[in-house]
């Protein structure tokens, strides 16, 4: 591994984004708009936004980063630049971590904007410290990035990559405890839910909004981080120097 090549890759990905201001605006503003829409919808029913607003903060960065990363890396695979990089002295972790850091940075910006918007403008009540909410959002975004990197290995076209979103993401939302507390689910589904990273992301957010800290927050957060790390390692294994 070479920090120079990793950072060069991070800088390159960010420069690519900087030539696409519309994407940056969408990345930073879209989640806030959706959170605002949600807050407005339940404006007359006190308590509903406080209950669901938190988990939304976990979902948006996860979904967005998943889609953005899987499409960007797919483009890299298809344009021949990945093959070119793989024919140089670049190591696979340089590439994967370079991407992870770049999108992780964007995710942090996104989390700051979205959490500020939710708490200050929409009045989301958070018992715990607000920075913890931001922290969870960032870790979720990194999870999305890692899964997106991994998923892009199985897509041949952008169209397929977008189709992976329902496959990788929707089951996690449905079984994540947002619609029904996980302990009330049928046993089989609860077991599946226990193996999905987003479940822990939502647990972590709920812990912050409820004001729990310590183990209630950091164990689920650690689980999400471990899933992200595992996905990054798997993604790195999907990079091939030799292709058929």
């Amino acid at each position: 591994m070479s920090p120079n090549r990793t950072l060069a890759t991070t800088a390159r990905v960010l420069k690519q984004l900087s030539h696409d201001p519309r994407s940056i605006v969408l990345l930073l503003v879209a989640p806030s708009l959706l959170v605002g829409l949600f807050a407005w919808l339940f404006d007359t029913q006190p308590g509903v936004f406080d209950r669901y607003g938190g988990p939304l903060l976990a979902l948006f960065p996860f979904i967005l980063m998943f889609v953005i990363t899987s499409i960007t890396t797919l483009r890299e695979r298809r344009s021949g630049t990945l093959e070119r990089l793989m024919s140089t002295t670049m190591n696979k972790p340089d590439f994967i971590i370079g991407y992870g850091v770049a999108f992780g940075f964007m995710a942090t910006l996104q989390a700051v904007v979205t959490v500020t918007f939710a708490v200050v403008l929409c009045g989301l009540s958070v018992e715990g410290p607000v920075w913890q909410l931001g922290l969870v959002a960032v870790v979720d975004a990194i999870l999305g990035t890692a899964l997106g990197l991994f998923a892009s290995a199985f897509a041949r076209t952008e169209f397929q990559a977008v189709q992976f979103m329902p496959l990788f993401v929707f089951p996690q939302i449905i079984l994540g405890g947002l619609f029904m507390p996980r302990e009330d689910m049928p046993d089989a589904l609860e077991t599946i839910s226990d193996w999905l990273p987003l479940s822990y992301a939502i647990d972590a957010i709920n812990a912050v909004t409820a004001g729990d800290s310590g183990a209630d927050l950091f164990i689920p957060l650690g689980v999400v981080g471990a899933f992200a790390l595992a996905a990054l390692v798997l993604a790195s294994l999907t990079l091939r120097r030799k292709t058929p």
Partner: peptide
């Protein structure tokens, strides 16, 4: 030691 230029231009369009 080996440099390779693929048939389709392998560079980043958005740089």
């Amino acid at each position: 030691l080996v440099a390779y230029d693929t048939q389709t231009a392998s560079v980043y369009d958005d740089l």
